[in-house]
Design a protein around this nucleic acid. Structure first.
Lengths: 242, 242
DNA sequence: TACGATTATATGTCTAGACATATAAGTCAA
DNA sequence: TTGACTTATATGTCTAGACATATAATCGTA
């Protein structure tokens, strides 16, 4: 019933302390709200200095597994808002990862001054130039998704001269605009004439829609809508406790 | 051009060091692959001890913003697989957060020995008892989602006696089974007769489907399918750079 | 030139202290 | 009972060292 694992000190001490506590939390032995031993107790238990247990507890706090309160102690956090890590890969990477042949086709590209609708979609007030792109991704020559994108040229001037007839704009942006933030909205629609034609599915068939709005440091970069055939495509998200 | 901010030392020193570096990474001033100043350089620059800059850099490493290599230095990581944190709230919480009146209705509840289909859905080999639940959530008396759930009683025996006619099973589980892991699959379908009736939408209308499979420490807990009217419901995921 | 041994060095971990600070809990007066 | 004040205490931050360890770079040799 000791906190100390019987394992030899193969890993470092603070990692062992962290793993010991994490295990107790994950197995439910220490349920949400449970008070973790005080630092000075852990110091006594492991026979180390306070900085060492402090490092272990600080990392658990950074991982949102525990909550630290001055004077009160450290407590197991209750599983907060249920959140999941949703991997939304670059479509080319996604298709090639499935072992299928990736195909890309630029349908439409236009450089224009931002219309009111464009500004609204990008969430900017200022007028400016944008690139509007419509393209299609396919896997093994079967339509996989159609993409409708707007790029703010005041944030990404290089996009004006990029050759999107060969490289999909998503991949291009990924390599030219590092460290972005994004917001995704997922919804379902049924295919209208136009969508059905582009995806080679029946009118009225379900489609999964991903709207992604991307920015960097409060500067809008791009807004994109991706349409997938709803019966064949699946988004998988893995939730890791916490 | 100093690393030191001109701001007074209101926050603590290591937090300022961390924020300084983070800012340079996020603005792109230090692009992916860029080598961050060595610890001893930062020590000289900020006039503090190595443990202090080490704490700042360790946190950046834990956040996957930088990568630390012995003898080589610390480097800005390139934005890895595009991933997003998808908040999938408990439905009751989700609805009340929107400021709407939450309504709940148990449609069907059955305790039974697991059928082959049940075992398949729960991903277990062993036979055992399960609770099958169908229920409906509403917001302001408008159907919001229908839920079809299976709970593995060998993992959650208390669920056999829980009163799901008053409390939705999702909320109940959230409070009785801490620290779970889950996998979500999101897809789109069109409403069939049955679904359309339950959601009070037209047959053929789009629906967003969330299949969630939940376990804890390799023990299956529950499998649930949630059906939302696709045109009214949106899942929002926020991606934080990295 | 290629490969193996050596060395220098940046990070990784840890210590035994210190003072700061927020706050739970107790104390006392209105 | 309530509110204001005091105190004890757990965490937060920081220091000036130390030794460990992985590895990039150098040097020497085949």
């Amino acid at each position: 019933m000791s906190l100390v694992t019987d394992a030899a000190d193969k890993p470092t001490l603070y990692k062992r302390i962290r793993a010991d506590i994490e295990k107790r939390i994950l197995t439910g032995e220490w349920p949400p709200g449970h008070r973790i031993p005080f630092e000075h107790e852990l110091v006594a238990r492991y026979g180390c200095s306070r900085m060492t247990v402090n490092k272990a507890l600080s990392e658990l706090a950074q991982a949102d597994l525990i909550e630290r309160r001055r004077r009160a102690g450290s407590f197991v956090r209750r599983p907060q808002h249920m959140s999941a890590v949703l991997k939304i890969a670059d479509i080319r990477a996604e298709i090639t990862a499935l072992g299928r042949a990736y195909g890309y086709e630029l349908i439409h590209r236009k450089l224009r001054a931002a219309t009111a609708a464009d500004r609204d979609r990008l969430g900017v007030k200022r007028a400016g130039k944008v690139v509007a792109i419509t393209c299609r991704h396919s896997a093994d020559n079967v339509p996989f998704a159609v993409e409708d994108r707007l790029i703010d040229l005041s944030s990404v001037p290089d996009a004006a001269s990029a050759d999107f007839s060969r490289e999909p704009p998503g991949s291009w942006l990924l390599h030219h605009v590092p460290w972005t933030e994004a917001e995704h909205t997922i919804s379902a629609i049924v295919a209208d004439d136009h969508t059905a034609g582009a995806l080679a599915i029946a009118v009225g068939a379900p489609c999964l829609v991903i709207d992604r709005y991307t920015w960097r440091s409060a500067r809008t970069i791009t807004a994109v809508r991706l349409l997938y055939p709803g019966d064949s495509h699946r988004l998988v998200a893995r939730f890791k406790g916490g």
